[in-house]
Design a protein around this nucleic acid. Structure first.
Length: 160
DNA sequence: GCCAACGTTGGC
DNA sequence: GCCAACGTTGGC
């Protein structure tokens, strides 16, 4: 059981969008960074906890708690020649990019990035490191508990 | 396999 | 829209 932070642009997919989706679940596709892909492919497993983060918006921050709802599987968008995520070097036999399903669990109090930066317990979060742009990053159990407490969510939020 | 040029991310 | 940071590409 691990914990992760996943960035989404709310103009594309917001936490509320996932809450409103069938089974509160969405496929996470379009990741085109090897480090983030390797987390999905090699480490992320069903039941892991997810901090759902809104990026590239007026007030970036953690919008809610989610969980990983599938194992990794090939990202279908890499094969769509008409789509913006097409990768001509990927084939169904040798896929390059990975997807995973994410299920919304609960929205707590919205936690703006500016507030997270003031919390000493979170100063080592990958998200908060200078120059960090990873769309998927690991979160420690202590950081996870701290975020849930700040958001006003029960400590067992995200438990399968 | 080096590394300059280029592209992207994402907060501000 | 700016720009710092960082990843990727491709010539050599």
């Amino acid at each position: 059981m691990r914990y992760w932070l996943m960035k989404s642009e709310p103009d594309e997919v917001s936490f509320d969008d996932v809450l409103a989706a069938p089974h509160r679940t969405t496929a996470w596709f379009g990741v085109r960074n090897y480090q983030a892909r390797n987390f999905m492919r090699d480490q992320m497993r069903e039941g892991d906890g997810v901090l759902f983060y809104h990026s590239s918006c007026a007030v970036p921050g953690v919008a809610g708690i989610a969980r990983i709802a599938s194992g990794p599987y090939p990202d279908a968008s890499q094969f769509d020649a008409a789509g913006k995520y097409f990768d001509p070097k990927a084939t169904p036999e040798t896929p390059r990019w990975t997807s995973i399903d994410v299920q919304a669990v609960a929205a707590g109090r919205y936690l703006p990035l500016t507030e997270l930066r003031t919390v000493p317990e979170l100063e080592d979060m990958v998200l908060l490191q200078k120059g960090s742009r990873l769309s998927i990053s690991p979160v420690t159990p202590d950081q996870w508990r701290c975020i849930l407490r700040l958001a006003g969510l029960p400590a067992d939020s995200g438990a399968a």
